[in-house]
């Protein structure tokens, strides 16, 4: 994994997923290093049936969030990010499907797997997570974070993404995504 040269503006991807009665809804916002939106993409709801739930077993959540929602959103979005941040720990597995570093923000109340390492950085008001398997990304991630505008808080854009998903739901956009 290579860090873009200092003169190149960097882009950040913020990935979240909401579990709703209709299934998992994914939302993905790409911003510039000032946190300004460049692109937004959302998914239709993914609702595994009982057989799928039984057959995927404990791998279901990771499959839905990382492979299905996360990977699809990142790949379908025109602007490629230099760093992906997610507030859903299961989506951190996305790192093994892409050549882009993926870190998580440590949302309170969620029990953390031992596969994750916590760390802190001035660009986030809450703790950050990185998969142990990809601990080697840490240096590159830190270099990228240093290049983000100091006013940006990595935990903040998820509020925007959730509001946008909520707005999309109100306007019926989540049913027509194609």
């Amino acid at each position: 994994m290579s860090v873009p040269p200092v003169s190149t503006p960097i882009t950040l991807g913020f990935l979240t997923a909401l579990q709703e009665p209709s299934g998992w809804l994914g939302g993905y916002l790409v911003t510039n290093s000032w946190g300004r939106p460049l692109e937004f993409r959302l998914t239709t709801a993914v609702q595994p049936n009982r057989v799928q739930t039984a057959l995927y077993g404990p791998t279901l959540t990771e499959y839905v969030l990382a492979d299905l929602i996360g990977k699809t959103l990142v790949e379908k979005t025109a602007t490629k990010p230099d760093l992906i941040v997610t507030d859903v720990p299961a989506a951190l597995a996305l790192r093994s499907r892409l050549e882009i570093p993926v870190i998580g923000v440590k949302v309170g109340g969620v029990e953390l797997s031992t596969d994750l390492t916590a760390f802190t950085h001035a660009r986030s008001s809450i703790g950050l997570l990185i998969p142990n398997r990809f601990a080697a990304d840490r240096t590159a991630v830190t270099q990228l974070l240093e290049r983000i505008d100091p006013a940006v808080d990595l935990a903040e854009p998820f509020t925007r993404v959730r509001e946008a998903i909520s707005e999309a739901r109100k306007m019926g956009v989540t049913n027509r995504a194609a």
Partner: peptide, 21 residues
């Protein structure tokens, strides 16, 4: 057994070059 997902996206106007961060 395989699951699929559909997406919809919106791209926003890029800031002019002279006003990039």
């Amino acid at each position: 057994l395989e699951m699929t997902v559909a997406t919809e996206g919106w791209k926003f106007p890029a800031p002019p070059v002279e006003l990039t961060p």
